[in-house]
Design a protein around this nucleic acid. Structure first.
Lengths: 349, 349
DNA sequence: CCAACAAGTGAGAGCGCTCTCACGCCCCCC
DNA sequence: GGGGGGCGTGAGAGCGCTCTCACTTGTTGG
């Protein structure tokens, strides 16, 4: 049905039509440098007329460039993938890639046995570079990528041992620590004196950084009396986890008058527990989340939270990768990027 | 930095190593039919040893197959893209494609001017087929695809004029009408007698089908007295829309004792309005949503809703496309698929 | 015992493109 | 007026693979 009629013109055909050589048409198609204006125009007309589109397979066979970038999501069962976030990041990535006429190859890894296949695939030169999300701990992909030398940018600061000092490591992260500090400082400014925190899994840098920010804010002297002891519970970045963590915190210290949850999902769980125990938000206990997911704006009460420009993070990842890809010898290599986080004050604090 | 050392072995190298011809290695790599078992094993060892991976560019240059499928999302600003749904569908698609060693090319369309580029891209033979989501009304892509003859499967039943009767049109949809009928029948079985509906934009078949299902259920005779007049309001598939629609419905008829919202998002808006007006759910007004998004399970009260197997829909789309791709002459062409929808009863009804 | 055939293998063309190199032309300078 | 240097163009090789076709070998049947 398809493919048997294949009227796609080749370079050859365009060249014949324009009365020039293949080489000249190729030059015009790829920027037109070094071709007389008049000829160039003529070739362009032929291209237009015949509806010529380059065959990328043939092109990439000789250039050794594929014009494609892999977006790799490890363990798509996890939070990162089901987040609405993820869609936004993809949008940012897609926008940037399109500007450069590059394709976006989506690679989802589910089973451990996929790893080897993917690693092989990535090393095989099928893509020019990769963007990787949600690698935990010592993810085997990191090593594979390093070995293969495939240019890669990570989404979120990588947390494997030694990542800190690895030179040339490229990532885009948001200022989790600063965002958390803002959130907790805000609670202090509101006069709260027993502020608890609910953290995500601390093997993820985002969770650890947010916890660090909490400690930072407690240690700041803003004239108000210091809160001596941190109150920490773990919520696994899920609503259920937040629910349990809040209960645990209240059991340990009923005097708590505020809680900073490391994600909106955990905050929603915390709200449920507070509600169940008859505590009013924000009168008795103030609540701040993190992420600014859409539902945060329509919970009861609306949730104070920390926002990050997710789409921009996506486009910066792509941009970083593209910059690395056409690095000329002698150019300064690009550096990791950390984007700003901003507190959004709503009804829950 | 990368690519200058390029130790990737070619077919030639493997052939030399195994002491056979290029053709034989090619045969082994592509299934091994017509090669003596002994030789085959020997070639496999060489492949393994050298770490040979076929160069897809070279391959697709001659086979005219790219081994890639485009997943096209039109207007990714819309609900369909930011849905958690979307991630699930992708997962289903990805799983199916991986089994067949096909790549997933993600194409997001944002601006009208992208359309032409994409249309050209799709017709240019860069992919073997396409999966398309969220095409509204007379989306230009539909025409482009038809013209180019690119094998395509749609996500959701297409709604453009004439789509109904178009032969060979392939799509995967969920039984929106049946799901809605179940939801409303459930409300009737609970003894509700003034059941309203909040619909999505009726230019999307899913919204229209759900409305039809509502009418179906009202018309069913189940022994209970019939509800004479349907009560319909429009909510645009958003929380805000649901909020406004619910207010409108209550203003028009304060006796309403149940509402079926065409999406969970609209249901959440409706809940807010009911809450604000001091109406108890489900005592005064029962609420049923549609989609079974994650937050549905943790709203207050938990939301009765209709679930569809989204991931399965994704994998069926991919499967349908792959079936169409390797259709031999004489095979029966695949047909559209409509998957089941299932009512999930929770606290709000 | 040889023709006919099947099965396994290799030689070689060619997919559509880029890119190097050589060539021709014109301009400038000595 | 001739040599050197640029610039624009074309010829041709070759990227790594598949696939057709011819060849060799082993098997069968007349």
């Amino acid at each position: 049905m398809h493919g048997d009629r294949d009227p796609r013109p080749t370079l050859e055909a365009v060249a014949a039509h324009a009365g020039v050589s293949r080489a000249t048409v190729s030059r015009v198609v790829n920027g037109g440098r070094g071709v007389r204006e008049e000829l160039r125009e003529q070739v362009r007309r032929s291209v237009e007329l015949l509806g010529y589109v380059p065959n990328i397979a043939a092109r990439s066979l000789v250039t050794r460039r594929t014009g494609a970038v892999a977006v790799v999501i490890a363990e798509p069962e996890t939070r990162v993938f089901s987040d609405p976030f993820f869609a936004q990041q993809l949008r940012g990535i897609s926008r940037e890639l399109r500007q450069r006429d590059m394709q976006l190859l989506l690679v989802l890894i589910e089973q451990p046995k996929d790893y080897e296949r993917i690693g092989r695939y990535l090393s095989a030169g099928h893509v020019d570079g990769a963007l990787m999300f949600s690698l935990h701990g010592a993810d085997p992909l990191a090593a594979m990528v390093r070995e293969s030398g495939l240019p890669t940018v990570f989404g979120g600061r990588p947390g494997w041992p030694g990542a800190e000092t690895e030179s040339g490591l490229l990532y885009v992260d948001t200022d989790n620590r600063g965002g958390a500090r803002q959130a907790v400082a805000h609670l202090r400014a509101r006069g709260r004196r027993r502020i608890a925190v609910i953290t995500g899994p601390l093997d993820q840098t985002s969770a650890q950084d947010r916890l660090d920010g909490y400690h930072d804010a407690l240690a700041e002297s803003d004239g108000a009396p210091r809160q001596a002891t941190p109150l920490v519970a773990h919520g696994a970045f899920t609503a259920e986890g937040g629910e349990a963590a809040m209960a645990e915190l209240l059991d340990a210290d009923p005097e708590i008058d505020a809680v900073f949850a490391g994600s909106d999902l955990m905050a929603s769980g915390a709200l449920r527990t507070l509600h169940r125990r008859g505590l009013r938000v924000p009168e008795d206990v103030a609540v701040v989340g993190y992420d600014d997911l859409e539902p945060a704006a329509w919970s009861e009460p609306t949730l104070t939270t920390v926002r990050q420009d997710v789409e921009r993070m996506g486009s910066m990842m792509a941009e970083l990768l593209l910059r690395k890809l056409d690095l000329e010898a002698g150019d300064a290599p690009p550096a990791p990027v950390v984007t700003e986080a901003r507190l959004i004050v709503r009804g829950s604090s």
